[in-house]
Every structure is written in structure tokens, then in C-alpha cells.
Amino acid sequence: MSSKSPVTVLDSLNLGLHQAMRDDPRVILLGEDVLDPYGGAFKVTRGLSSQFPKRVLTTPISEAGITGIAGGMALRGMRPVVEIMFGDFTTLIADQVINHLSKFQAMYHDRVRVPVVIRTPMGGRRGYGPTHSQSLEKFFLGVPGLTILAPFHIKGFETLGTPGKLLYDAIAALDFPVFFVENKTQYLLKLMSTNDLQEYEVSQIETAGAPAFPFYKLALRSAPKAQITLAAYGYMAHLALKAALRLAYEDEIFCEVLVPTQLSPFELAPLFDSVNQTTCLLTIEEGTLTLGWGAEVLARTTEVLGPSLKVARRLAATGAVVPAAPDQEADCLPGIEDIIVRVREMA
């Protein structure tokens, strides 16, 4: 594993894992096929089993088992990181996460901690078919005691890059269960450096809560004030930025893009500030529409802003069972064109 600066989100996450394991001997990694030379199905764990042979455990195909064991390890003072190979398989760990890991601290009257990080890639656009392409994080949003994070592909000022730093903090700084939502297509995204962000004015806004995971706000540089707020996380933030550029240059519709890194618990103050100015909100997610992330964001925004919010809509996956054929798969997942069409309707 080279010690060069990370180029992609994948590099950044890999570096973050290396750093976390280097800094704390209590960090253990469990997952299926994570050993070198394969280094994990998406290579996020590459190099770790060679560097830390006793602390990287390859497991049978038993997601519930892996998660349960991680919970037990955590109770006994370790800091396990679990890789669930595909986000679709998180259905198998739901009981462990919802009824066990996220409740132990409260049920045992604050005498235990459960510092488990569960990382998994959600998302489609690879032709992997119905049960390997979904974005299921929406089912875990709002589970009490569970923190859900999603990285953004910006380099920032971190040597690890912000995705790696986010993962590092999740492992090292949080003593409660974390669901770390990665995305298969996002892995390959190049981390945006200052040069790549020339078209934008980027601000990093700290949210409430300790520790706080930042919101990023990106507006077109030296352009008229934004008329609409686009809210998106993970890979969809990348599509939102591309759409925002085209909308500005082709239609002179100016958007500002708000990207949270903490999905749950919901801390949306920066988003409310933006929508207060623009009065117009579009949430964009790869999960399905009904009772998804966007639904909760709209509900909260309406509660806080009331009639100041003039137009609010959600863009999400259509709800079809995700096909394996690439063109049909693209039809059911939101793309740049879909975002542009929707914003034009709203503006």
C-alpha cells in the first residue's frame, strides 16, 4: 500500500482504515473475503491483513453472525469494524443492529459502550441486479442509538481525504454504533481538490452535536444568488453538482448544493438556513421514494420553516425492482438528466 496522497474515495477510505488500525490496537476488522491479496470485494480493505495479520478476520457468509460477534467484542473493550459486502445484505443484520447493538448502552444502564462501525457499499449502476444494487440505509435512519454517516468525495485539507477522515473518526472517536454508508460508484470518484472545485464556493459547516460531522455547501462562484437548494449525500451529491453546473450554464437556474455527512440523527440546521434563503428545496437520493431520507428532510424542513418553504420535492429511485440490464437499471435510478428536468419544473 503506497503512502501517496489518496486520489479516489476508495484510496481515502483504505488510508483511513490503515490509520485507524495503526493508531489503536483495539481496532479489529471483520468481513467476508477481506484478506489479501483479494483485499475485499471492492478493495477497500486492501493491505490491512498483511499489515495487521492478527486483527483482520475473514468470516463465513453470515452477516448476522459477524455483526453479533462484533457487538460482543465491543462490549469486551475492542473496537470492531464490520464490512458487509453489499448494502443489500444489511437486511440480515437488522435484528443485531436494531435490537442489540444500538440498545445495549441504554439497556445496561450506561455501563457498556458499543463502538462498532458497520461499513457497507450501497448503490447500483453496475448491472449487479435486484439484490446487489439497492440503497437500504433508509430503513435504519432514525433508529435510536444508531449514527449513520455517508462520505463526500472532497479532498479538503485532510491528508487522508475527507472520506478517510470521516471513517477514521467514526472508528476512533465515537463510542456508539455507526452505520457507515459507502457507494459502489462513489468508490471510483476522484477526490475533488481546490482545482477541481474552481467553479464552486465551498463551505464546510459544522453541525450541532458532539462530535459533529460537517455539512458541505457548494454554490456557483461569482454567480447570481441561488434560487433552489439541492440536498444530496454520497454518490448523489456528485450527480447533484454536475446537474447544478449544467443548470447554471444552460438554463441560468442557480442552485446551491447541501451535502450532509451525518444522515442520522438528523441535524439539518445548515439546510434550513439555505432553504430559508432560496425557499425552494429538492432532495435527491438513490434509495426509493416512499418514507425515504427525503421524506424526513421535507417533514423537518416544513416543521421549521412553515410557509417560508414555497416549493419542496423529492427525487429518488422509482421503486421498481432494480433490473440487471444497464439501460433499464439507469431508468429506475435518478441520474443527472432527471435532476435537471425536475429542477426546471420547479424553478
Binding site: 482545482n195 477541481d196 467553479e199 453546473l245 449544467r246 450554464y249
Partner: peptide
């Protein structure tokens, strides 16, 4: 490289 940004989205 550094000075001009070539973006597909913008002319």
C-alpha cells in the same frame, strides 16, 4: 492542468 478547467458541462 492547473489554470483552465475543462469541464464537460460548461463551455
Amino acid at each position: 492542468g492547473k489554470d483552465t478547467l475543462q469541464l464537460e458541462e460548461v463551455n
